[in-house]
């Protein structure tokens, strides 16, 4: 049997917002550290470090995760999406548009994570009910907005993204 690698540091490669990246990581690095410190993608925020606030939410292989609770080595070969990937060639994503239009932002610190949870939801459930929206963002704490305008924005975005319904 082939010897399995024991790594302290390792050069890993994965995809971020459609771009292939290679980063040297250590065993104690978390995905959020790689994104913020090594790749300088600072849109992803850290609020608690224990997966309770959701400010660090990114989409990993299609599902929303707390990047503060993902060991960086598990990112190898994965597909990661962060808030920086939403805008395409200078055009806001419909979710971003809806957040802007519905005043769904106050201090903005939870916003990137909130957008990623919302995006993950709308991809698998293009027309969620308000309750489904609330559940989908229940792991993203917001202290400013009381959530109502965020939920309205996500509901509106679902219609903008799929106007056929």
């Amino acid at each position: 049997m082939k010897q399995v690698d024991r790594c302290k540091m390792k050069l890993i490669s994965f995809t971020v917002n459609g771009t292939d990246v290679k980063v040297e990581i250590s065993a104690s690095d978390r995905l959020i550290d790689v994104l913020r410190d090594k790749l300088r993608l600072t849109g992803t925020k850290e609020g608690c470090g224990i997966g309770e606030c959701g400010a660090c939410t990114v989409i990993m292989n299609g599902v929303p995760v707390n990047s503060c609770l993902v060991p960086a080595f598990q990112a190898e070969g994965s597909v990661i999406e962060t808030v920086e990937g939403l805008e395409q060639s200078g055009k806001l994503h419909p979710l971003q548009e809806a957040f802007v239009d519905h005043a769904a932002i106050q201090c903005g610190f939870c916003t990137p994570g909130m957008l990623m949870s919302a995006l993950a939801l709308l991809r698998e459930n293009p027309h969620p009910t308000r309750e489904e929206i609330a559940r989908a963002i229940s792991g993203n704490l917001c202290r400013c907005t009381g959530y109502h305008q965020i939920i309205e924005a996500i509901e509106d975005a679902s219609m903008r993204m799929d106007p056929t319904e």
Binding site: T82, E87, L92, G108, T111
Partner: peptide
């Protein structure tokens, strides 16, 4: 009037710079 927040675009794109950024 309920105009858009002037800091909204920076905040939805992740471009807004918080101190730790």
């Amino acid at each position: 009037h309920p105009v858009r927040r002037v800091d909204a675009i920076a905040k939805v794109t992740g471009r807004a710079k918080f101190t730790d950024d």
